[in-house]
Design a protein around this nucleic acid. Structure first.
Lengths: 208, 208
DNA sequence: ACGCGCATGTAAGAAGTTACATGATTTC
DNA sequence: GAAATCATGTAACTTCTTACATGCGCGT
């Protein structure tokens, strides 16, 4: 499980479950997410394992808050996770499985629209990351050279997102080009017997 | 759940659970995995839903096999999944969460070794994909221009892996360079007391 | 009076992992 | 006769999602 050490990581500063959810959404949402309904029981478990402690506090706006803090044992547990080396090869990409089986759909239009939707999502997300990067760049003098260790590591994860999303958008474009080439070949064989005109692109309607 | 439609996808050709596991490992292992202990119950569920049927067959080498085939209802279910658009934003990258919190380790050596391990894994995987690509290229005439629709779609997923892994390796290298730069600055700041230079960096403690 | 943001939770179920149990047939 | 591969499964557990339940305090 990675949720436990992630919560321990955020609990460097005392927070409630509700706080943690907001922190998730503001920082690691691009590579991890958790619902409140998972966070609360996990905090209970961490507490019963002695990795965090909690105190009840009054809130100005709303009901009482249960505020959690990391114990030394919790910090050790986090350090163990960090020192154990990268946890990887657990990634699952449902959309690649879909693309893989779109070969059975016998409808290249479906593949095209699929790739276009994917591209749009990647591009949106890329835009979000870029604007985060720009905002940081404006607000922080000397960004990214002189960041705190925490902010530097956060910046590296941002960079990873930027790099990958750029690669992903480029891959979608490349795939769409390959698709178009296939369609032209296919259609060229069907419609016109001569292969003379290279720019002819008409309706790409196909059967089904 | 994506396992159900994935199994339906593979069941274009009748297969046993055991077969399916091998097919997983040979084709989609880079973006999806499933254990036999998950495949068997899922096949039972698909059967009880009428999306597949099974027959018992004798095996030459080993015990009887339970061979599953997709029903028309199963094919419809698969098509619905494919037509529903990309299933995304469910990806989780534990190692990015680790990197994020490595800022708390106060030990840049740990970060370096972490990034080096990550880089090695990406590079290994990239190598595997490249050799798959090369093998296909040698064995199939006209690859990738004249592939069957199935193989073309599989090729697109391979391309995705190649692109992303290249981006990932490049990101690791970039991160390691940034890390080195920081270490030089840090060390320079530690060793020499003079603060006259323009790179003087003071406490950047920020709110909270 | 109603809705919104704050705040904590439970219940039920789906999805996925790890470990174990069983037994056939082939190869060394 | 031991090991490897073939073959199907169950049990126990962890992880994650979806839906629901409850109630405070503020603004309109």
């Amino acid at each position: 499980m990675s949720l436990k050490p992630i919560l321990l990581g955020f609990l460097e500063n005392p927070s409630s479950g509700y706080d943690l959810k907001k922190i998730f959404d503001q920082t690691v949402r691009f590579f991890w997410n958790a619902e409140l309904s998972q966070i609360y029981p996990t905090l209970h478990r961490l507490r019963s394992e002695g990795l965090v402690v909690s105190t009840r506090e009054r809130s100005e706006k709303g009901p009482d808050r249960e505020v959690y803090s990391r114990t030394p044992a919790g910090t050790e547990e986090l350090q163990r996770w960090l020192a154990a080396g990268p946890v990887s090869h657990t990634e699952r990409f449902a959309y690649l499985a879909q693309l893989f089986f779109l070969g059975q759909a016998e409808d290249l239009d479906l593949t095209r629209s699929f790739l276009q939707q994917l591209r749009a999502r990647f591009a949106d997300r890329l835009q979000v990351l870029r604007s985060i990067d720009e905002k940081e760049r404006e607000e922080q003098p000397g960004y990214p050279e002189s960041l705190t260790p925490r902010d530097f590591h956060a910046y590296l994860t941002l960079l990873c997102g930027l790099n990958r999303l750029e690669a992903s958008v480029a891959w979608c474009d490349q795939s769409l080009r390959l698709l178009e080439k296939r369609e032209l070949l296919h259609q060229g064989g069907k419609k016109t017997e001569r292969g003379g005109n290279k720019t002819q692109r008409d309706e790409r309607r196909r059967r089904r």
